[in-house]
Design a binder for these strands. Structure first.
Ligand SMILES: [Mg+2]
Ligand SMILES: [Mg+2]
Length: 276
RNA sequence: ACAUCC
DNA sequence: GGATGT
């Protein structure tokens, strides 16, 4: 469901758009602005509000309350259908066999409110009267960074990986699909590719990966996969050897950080094809 | 258990 | 539900 941007296109829009998860979370007063922050962002979270006050308040909550409520409602319905009895009584409960209900989903912790960011320095092209960005939270991660991720259709299965600029979502590299890889091989190769490419380009963006496993393999300089080589996946093993060799023969390194998926949502390089 | 991939 | 990994 997308807010409609067509109607009343003249004389400025009257809605306010909260972006909780997007390239630059904040409150925007035009769908065009908001859309730039959410389109192409995995699991983007955003909603339109009628007034700036409502929007700012909702943004400060740190998450989309509306969708959380709907989630909880769906869960209640599901439990009801299963015949699960939810017990709201306090400590004292003499009743013997009441099936235990799952704890209701907890509200995510509100985004940490750190110092308000200075507005992106207005250029001459910025409309002077009306600020377009009403509220802007600095994201908890480094925006000047490269995000990498891998995917495979089955594990093992056809494997691919890519890297994107966190700031813009722009894809910097994309390899595959290649037959018969594992998730972990892909996550490993993605990081090495990010390092090698940046050395070649002369850039030094820190790298985000959501794979603790791959980060460890980078540290030890070895792809410790248990997958066995065969004819089908030979090209992947070729790549692995090249990657390990690169790590051995180059001292060039960059900070590699854990992308905290549970707090920040899917890494921007995600392929967005998980179930659910 | 944690982190991922389907 | 199943696989890859520490
Ligand atoms: Mg990943
Ligand atoms: Mg992913």
């Amino acid at each position: 469901m997308h807010p409609n941007s067509n109607q009343l296109s003249h004389m400025g829009t009257n809605k306010y758009y909260v972006v909780w998860k997007g390239f630059a979370p904040g409150v925007y007063d035009s769908w065009e602005e908001a859309e730039m922050q959410v389109s192409g962002y995995p699991d983007a979270s955003y909603r339109a509000f009628k007034t700036m006050e409502a929007a700012v308040e909702a943004f400060r909550e740190g998450f989309d309350k509306e969708s959380l409520i709907k989630e909880v409602a769906r869960e209640m319905e599901r439990l009801e259908k299963e015949g699960t009895v939810i017990e709201f009584d306090k400590k004292k409960s003499g009743k013997a066999d009441i099936p235990k209900a799952e704890a209701p989903a907890e509200a995510p912790a509100p985004a940490k409110t750190t110092t308000p960011i200075e507005k992106t320095t207005p250029t001459e092209t910025t409309p002077p009267v009306k600020k377009r960005v009403i509220v802007q939270q600095p994201p908890p991660y480094l925006v000047d960074s490269l995000a990498v991720d891998a995917a495979c259709a089955g594990n093992p299965g056809p494997m691919e990986y890519r890297g994107v600029l966190v700031r813009t979502g722009q894809e910097i590299f994309h390899v595959g699909p290649m037959e018969g890889g594992t998730n972990n091989i892909g996550e490993f190769l993605a990081i090495v590719h990010g390092l090698a490419l940046q050395e070649k380009q002369g850039t030094r963006l820190p790298i985000y990966s959501d794979s603790v496993n791959a980060q460890k393999w980078i540290r030890i300089g070895i792809c410790k996969t248990q997958l066995e080589e065969n004819e089908q996946n030979a090209p992947i093993f070729d790549l692995i050897r090249r990657a390990e060799s690169w790590l051995r023969t180059h001292t060039f390194r960059l900070p590699i950080y854990k992308w905290e998926t549970s707090k920040w949502g899917e890494i921007p390089a995600d392929f967005g094809r998980k179930k659910h």
